[in-house]
């Protein structure tokens, strides 16, 4: 489904990703771990096509499409969803209106019928329950004045609404207490399916207790230096990143 080969990305002239390879098959859950500054978030933003993340080499293919040729919204239309570490506030933009515009833009791009108001409302209500999001928040401006946990739940709600093929969840666990983490994890688990791939980007093993990955990769210095299954995550939890950084440097 997703194939990344020798990806090199610069930010403001500084080389962050230095030849990263990753293959994600349909239905798989990949966890990407690594120390701060290793390039985890750069990978997620480069996948989503953010300006300022300059791809200087390599390729990213998604269902056979060359992502590098596509704008962020075109990638979203293909089914790529990025759940952000710091979801952006949109003052004055109603959360429901936003989700409806988003959903219908994607449906239109795929040649599907737009969802009418009634069907849309029904779907929002169902999905909101999934992440235990207060309905009041649906009527407020997107993320404006939301707590950290509410913002993250709102992200998962949008993911549930948009039903992406590939969801990249960037440090979705950061700043969450254990209850919020459980709710989010339950939401994500409910969205696991044989057609949907998930990339979990996280610094800590904790999230993986709740969302079990098929593969675990460790990024150090802009490259994947080690891959394994969830045992690798447990090992990292015990030993920290130091040993792996040393190995990578050696």
């Amino acid at each position: 489904m997703l194939s990344i080969k020798n990806l090199q990305v610069d930010i403001e002239g500084k080389n962050i990703l230095q030849g990263l390879d990753l293959d994600v098959g349909a239905g798989q859950v990949h966890a990407i771990m690594g120390p701060n500054g290793s390039g985890k978030s750069t990978l997620s933003h480069a996948l989503a096509g953010r300006d300022g993340y300059e791809v200087t080499g390599g390729e990213m293919l998604f269902d056979g499409h060359d992502l590098l040729a596509l704008d962020p919204e075109q990638r979203a239309h293909l089914g790529i969803f990025l759940g952000m570490q710091y979801p952006v506030e949109l003052p004055g933009v109603n959360n429901m209106v936003f989700m409806r515009e988003s959903l219908n833009a994607i449906r239109r791009a795929r040649g599907e019928e737009e969802l009418d108001a009634v069907a849309f409302m029904q779907r929002v209500r169902d999905k909101a329950r999934l992440v235990d999001l207060d309905e009041k928040l649906l009527k407020r401006s997107v993320n404006a004045g939301f707590s950290g946990g509410e913002k993250k739940r709102n992200e998962i709600l949008q993911m549930a609404m948009l039903e992406p093929k590939l969801a990249i969840l960037d440090e979705t666990d950061s700043g969450l207490d254990i209850d919020a983490l459980r709710i989010i994890a339950a939401g994500v688990n409910a969205l696991r399916s044989p057609e949907r791939s998930i990339i979990l980007i996280t610094h800590y093993q904790r999230l993986l207790d709740y969302i079990e990955p098929d593969y675990v990769h460790v990024i150090v210095g802009g490259r994947i230096v080690r891959s394994g299954d969830k045992e690798l995550a447990l090992e990292l939890e015990k030993k920290g990143y130091g040993w792996i950084e040393e190995e990578a440097a050696a």
């Binding site: 096509g49 300022g52 919204e73 990025l82 952006v88 988003s102 833009a105 791009a109 948009l162």
Partner: peptide
């Protein structure tokens, strides 16, 4: 720029 990117990531032109 982050607001624009956020909307576009959700499929809006």
């Amino acid at each position: 720029e982050d607001q624009l990117f956020y909307c576009r990531q959700r499929g809006l032109s």
